[in-house]
Structures are given as C-alpha cells and as structure tokens.
Amino acid sequence: MATKILLPIDHTDDRSWKKALATALEQAKFYGAELHAVEVIPEIIQLPNLPEGYGSGAKDYVRGKVEAILAANDAAYVPVHIEEGSVYREILKLAHKDGYDMIIMASAKGDFPNYEIGPNLARVVRNAHCTVMVVRD
C-alpha cells in the first residue's frame, strides 16, 4: 500500500509524464495517497566564460513549466519539488529523505526486445528503497 507517491517529470519531454501522470493520479486515488511531482535540473557547469549568476531563475522557470503541466491535467493541487544535480541521485535522495513509498516513472517505448530503459530509470529501479512502478509508453 502506498501513502506517498513521487512522480519524476521532465517538462521538455512529454513521454516522461503523459502516461505516468495519469497512472500516478489513479494510484494516488486508489490508495488515498499523497502525490508529489519532482523535476531535476542537471547541475549547471560553472565554466569561466559563463556570466556570474548563470542559471539563476532556472528553478522558478522549471517550476512554472511543471505546474502548468499539472494544471492542464487537473492536478494543480500536486506539490512540486525542483532539485538540482544528478537526476537519479536527486530522485533517490528525495524519495528516501521524505519517506516516499512509491516512485512512478515513465519508460519510452522501444522495439522488442530492446525496450528503452534509460540510465536514470535503471538506476532508480536498482537503488530505490521503495517500490518503483515503470509505466511503459
């Protein structure tokens, strides 16, 4: 039984959330669980030629994009977390720290037998302390 569900989203790729969001909403309703969304911004590399403060405002921009996706799918009430760093590490850290007992992630469709399971999804599945539901496209 799930009481707290985490849904990683990449606002730049609707395959990361389109089907998974619907599944997460169903699971949250079925279990009476809290649903939270997270997007991880990859670490911004500090190169000497980048201006000071490069990337400031990125979290607010991404939060707005994720909130718009949720609102357009009747899920505006879902809390949004924006993390920065390694995608799979930040998902795992958040899930462990905040006591999530289920993570729902999407996997893009590939041709049999090569279903597309990217490195972030594979690492989350292998290392999560909780149940991980993979939603196939």
Rank of each mutant, 00 (worst) to 15 (best):
I91R: 04
A28Y: 04
L25F: 00
E116I: 15
D74H: 15
E83N: 03
V134K: 02
S86M: 04
Y88T: 00
P113N: 10
S86Q: 08
K4G: 04
P8F: 10
K18V: 03
A22T: 15
V135M: 07
A122M: 07
H11C: 13
N73K: 14
A128Q: 05
R136T: 12
S56K: 09
V62Q: 05
T23K: 14
A33I: 12
V62N: 07
Y54M: 07
W17G: 02
D14Y: 05
Y100L: 09
D13Y: 11
P48A: 00
W17D: 00
V66T: 14
P51A: 14
V38M: 07
R136Q: 07
G53F: 07
I5K: 08
V125N: 01
I103L: 04
K59H: 05
G55V: 08
K93I: 07
A68G: 12
K97T: 10
I103V: 14
I9A: 05
A106Q: 01
N120Q: 10
S16A: 06
R123H: 09
E67S: 13
L7D: 09
D137H: 08
M1R: 09
I5Q: 06
G85R: 12
P113T: 08
A22S: 15
A75T: 08
K65Q: 15
A108Q: 12
G57L: 03
H11E: 15
E67P: 05
D98Q: 15
K4R: 15
R123W: 00
L35I: 11
G118I: 04
E43Y: 03
D137Y: 06
A76R: 11
N127V: 00
P42D: 07
A72Y: 00
L70V: 06
I45L: 14
Y54W: 12
P48R: 05
A76I: 08
P79K: 10
L47K: 05
L50S: 09
A37I: 13
R15D: 10
L21K: 10
N120L: 02
N73W: 10
P119W: 00
D98G: 02
E52R: 11
I44R: 08
E83C: 04
A24T: 09
D13E: 14
A106M: 07
A72F: 00
D137T: 09
I82M: 05
E26D: 13
I9R: 09
D14C: 01
K93S: 13
V78F: 12
A24S: 14
P79M: 06
E39W: 01
L35Q: 13
A95Y: 01
I44L: 15
K19S: 10
I45T: 11
P113S: 02
K59N: 04
E52F: 06
F30I: 03
V87R: 10
V78D: 13
A22R: 13
D10T: 11
R136N: 13
M105P: 02
K109C: 03
L21N: 08
H81I: 02
I69Q: 11
S86I: 12
V132F: 03
A106W: 01
T3F: 00
I44C: 04
I5W: 04
V124G: 02
A95V: 00
P48H: 05
D137I: 01
G57Y: 01
R136P: 01
R63P: 02
P42R: 08
K65Y: 06
A108C: 03
P79N: 09
H36P: 02
A2C: 06
N73Q: 14
L50K: 10
